[in-house]
Design a protein around this nucleic acid. Structure first.
Length: 380
DNA sequence: GAGGAGT
DNA sequence: ACTCCTCAACGCCAT
DNA sequence: ATGGCG
């Protein structure tokens, strides 16, 4: 996920005040609707909207260039849908231009995937990455529900300095979140009832885009082997983006500091053992041609995109848990997207087939400062 | 996206 | 009734 | 102290 207020290619920003300028010419050809819109705004003495608003108008213009101007009042119903008993506004709004996905497609996905997704959300604080103006617009990361309630959503008060954390424990809550353009769902690595004792360690393997996918598969297997040597069973999911997540379930016990220290030791061991393959340093220049092992998800208040969460990036990748023996057949971190995820869900529905993470809730293991020390001192 | 203030 | 404005995170690490 | 990062 990115910073909450990323301003990418913003069309025709106008300085506050009287003088306004024609938008710089974009590198891509500008659709006619957009040209007309910006030209009109510049020519007539019309107040020029703020960038976010401009994007919204542009998007609307692109989607429905031929909407009759005199639409009868109250006929917004044409773009209002219903999913699982929840009113979905702007249902036909396109949220991802690349795939042509509409808001209603997103909401319906979350309704369909709920049986698999909800167990990963249940009882955990959840943070949302919302994109009310679509993937091209402003993205909002939301950890608390202070101002506004979302129907069905559970509130965990006083777990985070008195700011109510978000809990999604029902289909109803999930669909209301999707109605609010909640696209990514990030869960804490601890249960709300035991929020100071993490119950998993997560390693986010984030490759330099230049690297081939085989390198990422190899890196994941190295990580699995290292953890296995420490007596820890690990699980793998596609990140829906470029890389993979390695997840190690824990019996709660060690606190956040010990858990983070362990995760850091693992990341640094990978980086020192295979220096051409891994880095544990976040800065961009250290990452060239490497796979960044992001161990900093293992901090109180941080989160990781949940299994079956959509990612708010063009193409709308999905996080998908897989079995280790499936890894070699994957083609990338975004192997599954909103466009092809149904194939996977159908597989999961086959009664005889073992769930890829069947053992996840059965594993009984934990970490300790002793184990971390052993790792740091170079022991096996 | 939603709520509140302002017109 | 409508438009406009505002709001919706945070901790860690490298430098 | 600041900036970038996720």
């Amino acid at each position: 996920m990115q910073d909450a207020h990323s301003t990418d290619t913003s069309p025709g920003r106008t300085p506050t005040g009287a003088s306004r300028q024609v938008p710089e010419s974009p590198s891509q050809p500008v659709p006619e609707a957009l040209q007309a819109l910006t030209l009109d705004a510049a020519a007539a003495d019309v107040p020029v909207p703020r960038p976010a608003r401009a994007k919204r108008q542009v998007q609307e213009a692109l989607q429905a260039p031929q909407v009759p101007p005199a639409r009868p009042r109250n006929s917004r119903a044409s773009t209002t849908g219903e999913v699982a008993g929840v009113r979905i506004t702007s249902a036909r709004r396109i949220i991802d231009v690349e795939s042509g996905t509409r808001k209603l497609d997103l909401v319906r996905y979350y309704a369909r995937v709920a049986p698999w997704l909800l167990p990963h959300l249940r009882d955990r604080p959840v943070a949302l990455l919302r994109a009310p103006q679509g993937l091209g617009g402003e993205r909002v990361f939301q950890r608390h529900l202070t101002r506004m309630a979302i129907p069905g959503v559970t509130l965990h008060d006083e777990l985070d300095g008195g700011h109510p954390l978000i809990g999604i424990d029902s289909l109803d809550a999930l669909i209301h979140v999707a109605q609010m353009d909640g696209i990514e769902l990030h869960t804490w690595s601890a249960r709300a009832a035991n929020v100071d004792l993490p119950d998993r360690v997560v390693f986010d393997l984030d490759p330099d885009p230049a690297l081939g996918w085989e390198r990422v598969i190899e890196a994941a297997q190295l990580t699995r082997t290292l953890l296995g040597d420490l007596g820890l069973e690990a699980f793998c999911q596609t990140s829906g983006n470029k890389g993979l997540h390695i997840v190690v379930p824990l019996v709660p016990g060690p606190g956040w500091d010990d858990t983070k220290a362990f995760a850091r030791a693992v990341a640094q061991r990978l980086a020192s053992g295979w220096p051409t393959q891994f880095t544990a340093i976040q800065n961009a220049d250290h990452r060239k041609k490497k796979i960044y092992v992001d161990y900093l998800r293992n901090v109180r208040g941080a989160g990781t995109a949940a299994a079956y969460s959509v990612r708010a990036r063009p193409g709308l990748g999905v996080c998908v848990p897989i079995a280790w023996d499936e890894l070699a057949q994957t083609t990338g971190g975004a192997h599954w997207t909103l466009a092809n995820i149904d194939v996977r869900l159908k597989q999961l529905n086959r009664p005889k087939r073992a769930a890829p993470w069947a053992r996840f809730t059965e594993v009984r293991q934990t970490v300790s400062s002793e184990l971390t020390l052993r790792l740091e001192e170079g022991g096996a």
